[in-house]
Design a protein around this nucleic acid. Sequence first.
DNA 1: TGTTGACTCTGACGTTGCGTAATAGTTTAG
DNA 2: CTAAACTATTACGCAACGTCAGAGTCAACA
Lengths: 245, 245
Amino acid sequence: MMTVHEVSKLTGVSIRALQYYDKIGLLSPAEKTDAGYRLYDDAALERLQQILLFRELEFPLKDIREIIESPFFDRKKALQQQIELLTLKKKHLEDLITFARGIKLTGVKNMDFSAFDTKKIDEYTENAKKQWGASPEFKEFEKKSENWTDESKKAVYDSFIQLFADFGKIKDSDPSSPEAQQKVKDLQAFISKNFYKCSDEVLFGLGKMYAAGGEFTENIDSYGGSGTAEFVHQAITVYCGKQMK
Amino acid sequence: MMTVHEVSKLTGVSIRALQYYDKIGLLSPAEKTDAGYRLYDDAALERLQQILLFRELEFPLKDIREIIESPFFDRKKALQQQIELLTLKKKHLEDLITFARGIKLTGVKNMDFSAFDTKKIDEYTENAKKQWGASPEFKEFEKKSENWTDESKKAVYDSFIQLFADFGKIKDSDPSSPEAQQKVKDLQAFISKNFYKCSDEVLFGLGKMYAAGGEFTENIDSYGGSGTAEFVHQAITVYCGKQMK
DNA sequence: TGTTGACTCTGACGTTGCGTAATAGTTTAG
DNA sequence: CTAAACTATTACGCAACGTCAGAGTCAACA
């Protein structure tokens, strides 16, 4: 059992922050002494590790709490996402360094601000949150799935996989073909019915995520064959382009 | 001349932020129309670039303003420091990635929080601020140097360089020797007299900065020969160790 | 046993860097 | 000439703590 002071020294988190985390229900101590002193055990420290990783990624504390308390939370999966996000951030810093070096050497006043662009990171972060508990979509999904049996769960996921397998069959054709577009429509309807309301915007976001080169891409390609994820992405882009404009 | 909207689109900075920057005097538009609309020119954009670089490094906006408005501000030097800080941050992210990978693979509950440690970055940041305008030390220095002539300036800097050259002469001896310790005392007195009050703590911070491997190290070594900066660092450490405990 | 010094608690208020209306004037395209 | 798109200025809100203030606790030493 460690006191706040000890935890603070070990982790670098201020005492005030620990008290605050306790207050907002993000990290409670294992127990309290009669005098009200906080005492932390190893489990609490482990949780703190998780919290700090998310904090490095600038997740709001509220989201962090929802995420690690979600019944769907899977630490390994979360770690994988965290690694991917950290890698994206690293790349961002590398871009900035390159940018700064460029100015320093040439002194060029190039009105280029692309190095400051964080869209990709933000999008990926958004999608990560959708997977866990910190989005309205997820909350809707949580409700819908409340009274699912193990069987219906499996049935739904099998159908889901089947959809991607179908995409895989036509992945070498034109993404704007009627069949492909119909499949996109099916996908949107399926998600809306079984998971959460899948607006065109949400669908567009999903498409990007599918092709982002992470775990999603791998999974989808494993169901439909290499290149399927990218094909789905393109088909969705075409679909949303038609719908939205 | 660009409107807020255009600047926002180009740079990714929100309109609200631009208005805010104007309000706090961090970034004013080149001019305003009769109706009060903000119009930015290229100079403003250039300044915005600087601001964004500092913002990426999490400098408070107030500090950023003081820094880029300091009469001592040198853009090239600032860029160099920014690059070094960005590199440090990148390394920090790499540590975190390594850490996360370690947990993921082994599942080990290692109560190791060193990857979250930002002390080095913070120290370097502090020192960077001391060089520019955002520290009490610097403000004191600014006052003292107000009525310096070019000659007295040169004299002071020559003496300063001489101090390091002296360190260089004994850099292969023991840092805790009386001579070395005396030199440290001289250095502290010199800084206090000519720049700003150099407490033991400040001195200790300087020592670290000297040996951090950046521009300072290079300069010092160029005056006293390779290894001088590290020697000074060690001598200061010994000196402060004695004084402070 | 008393006292000192280091720790800790709980409020309560302050701060930074904007987001988010609310309300109102401005400019531009058709 | 009107609607759509922009912009301005208050003003309030929020996250994640920092920073007192006032008060209780604990370990150790005298």
